[in-house]
Design a protein around this nucleic acid. Structure first.
Lengths: 156, 156
DNA sequence: CAATAAGGTACTAAAATAGTACCGTTTTGG
DNA sequence: CCAAAACGGTACTATTTTAGTACCTTATTG
């Protein structure tokens, strides 16, 4: 359903926790306790976020994790890519697409464009904004509103 | 990976075929042949699209399917919702969310905002545009560019 | 040197997705 | 009027992905 995985959802909680801490570092179990997420999952997430360069780790006793940079400089796209891999709406959006329909397919390019638009959206929202929703513009009309005239707009 | 399912991907091929036809209706097997998708899958997709009101069906010999309205009035959001269910980035974006973390969770609202932004993007792209990618604005700056200053922008 | 904490890997279980099959109903046209 | 064409509905199986866990290794501190 175009849904992020649970792990990614949890991952943002973990990051929010790190963003909110006043202390130096937080250990995986600190975070597990404050977020109420299972320790094994928290550890897994922190490893992934660390690999992606979003958090940094300190080993040994009194070690732990911290954000690698300011929450203003961590984008939603960064987070999603770290935890779910490349942001690709369709299989053929990938550079090494193996879609054998690509010749016949007239819509691949269209979806790639949509993919870019979504990526831009996700690049433009920071972790800091995620933690403080009011700072996210809730209704930003595009500068040239070239919309689907009369396209049904379901209201959720 | 924030990816649409294969079926949705196939579904847009089916819709593109219907959008392109000059004839009256196309049967499931017509579409299966022209798209090279398996007949059972094509049938399943057409049933779903019909239920969602995107295509209309005509039963009996010489029956088949046609778009329910102009491809300009069918949005990407319509298609995704028909084939993948509600457009919800996170579990707690749903109205009947059962996320017991909701109290502790500071990021749910933020993701909901992002969800709305993506929804708007998908509402603003039509099937007609998907079939003719050049008509999709490839670089539309938002009217107030309140971006993450210096957020890393991975280039895919 | 013992305790704490991260790094890495591999495995199991559960859930979602994809693909298929079958039978019923409607309509056409000879 | 009946056989063939084509959709409607449902239920099932297999595959793939996701979630969750376990276990061992390495590093740091006091």
């Amino acid at each position: 359903m175009l849904r992020m995985s649970k792990m990614t959802d949890y991952g943002t909680l973990v990051l929010a926790e790190l963003a909110a801490t006043t202390g130096d570092v937080l250990s995986a179990s600190d975070i597990s306790q404050s977020t109420r997420l299972g320790l094994p999952s928290v550890r897994k997430l922190l490893k992934m976020l660390c690999k992606a360069g979003i958090v940094v780790s300190f080993r040994g006793a009194s070690g732990g994790y911290a954000l690698a940079r300011s929450p203003h400089n961590i984008s939603a796209a960064d987070i999603l890519e770290a935890l779910e891999g490349p942001l690709l709406l369709t299989a053929c959006s990938a550079s090494d697409s193996q879609c054998e329909l690509e010749q016949v397919c007239g819509v691949g390019k269209g979806w790639k464009r949509v993919n870019q638009m979504i990526r831009r959206t996700l690049n433009d929202v920071s972790l800091a904004q995620l933690c403080d929703a009011e700072t996210i513009p809730s209704d930003v009309p595009r500068s040239d509103d070239l919309t689907v005239h009369g396209a049904s707009r379901s209201t959720i």
